[in-house]
Amino acid sequence: MIVADLSPGDLQARLRTGLYLRTGPFVSCITSSEPLLAEGIALHYAEHAVETEFADFHVRIARPRNLRRWYRPQVRFYFDDAPSFHPLPADQAFPMLEWGLNWCVTNQAHRYLIIHAAVLQRQGKSLILPAPPGSGKSTLCAGLAHSGWRLLSDELALIDPDTGRVVPVPRPVSLKNRSIEILKAFAPQAVFNPTVSDTIKGDVAHMRAPPDALLRAEESAAPGWIVMPHFEAGAAPQLVEITRARGMMALIENAFNFDLHGRRGFDTLGDFVDQCRCYRYSYGSLADAIDGCNRLADAA
């Protein structure tokens, strides 16, 4: 069964007792009575499988038991009944779920080496975009996902130490501020939920993962390219190859749990980067950026 098989009423009923939702290798049991959350899930997770028996993470989005339940209502994120993060305005219920699920993965899935990076794939090879917030990583990721690249994740590169491959976690792509309009203009076919204003990250909207991302959600990707994106308004595109050592440092600097994996983590990442070519890429427009990535793939 997938989410789209449930009527809005059924989905809400499931959410009240816990919806076991599959996203890539993880199943999250989500409990909430927030209507906005149900709408967000119906829109973004329509094609995702609904499971029954086992969840990796049990999360709940609920109103606090105080005045803020009614007065300028807030919601809280609970990980297995323990409140986490500060409360947010109730209209941010869906972004909060997304941030919370990322937090679950980065805090609980240490079986993988987890790197803060967008991952896409073409011709069997992965393109990893490790970068701090503000570098244009998500915008580029969303653009590529609508330009013939398969989306693995916009936030989390999961490297499996057993196989040395990247495991997909296809979920909606989070876009902020001006990126939202840029993407809507670039890919009119992309599906967005209504923009939520005034979040801690500014205006936020989520773009639904394209269909092939979900169809191939169990297909891992081999090492390919590591590209450190850097958006600079009006700049001419400049793709500079850097050493593998520098590429590896970029992954380590953006890793969530490299420090936990010790020697094995170092070897895993070293082997991975050995099979990649690494670049630093400055660009001034989304079209330029996508063009540069396509040329990398075509040259391979």
Partner: peptide
């Protein structure tokens, strides 16, 4: 395999903390 992934995750964490 599903619960094993969590056991493996906990082993990674415990080993790192020991070090």
């Amino acid at each position: 395999p599903q619960p094993r992934a969590h056991l493996e995750s906990a082993l990674v964490l415990a080993e790192a903390q020991g070090t």
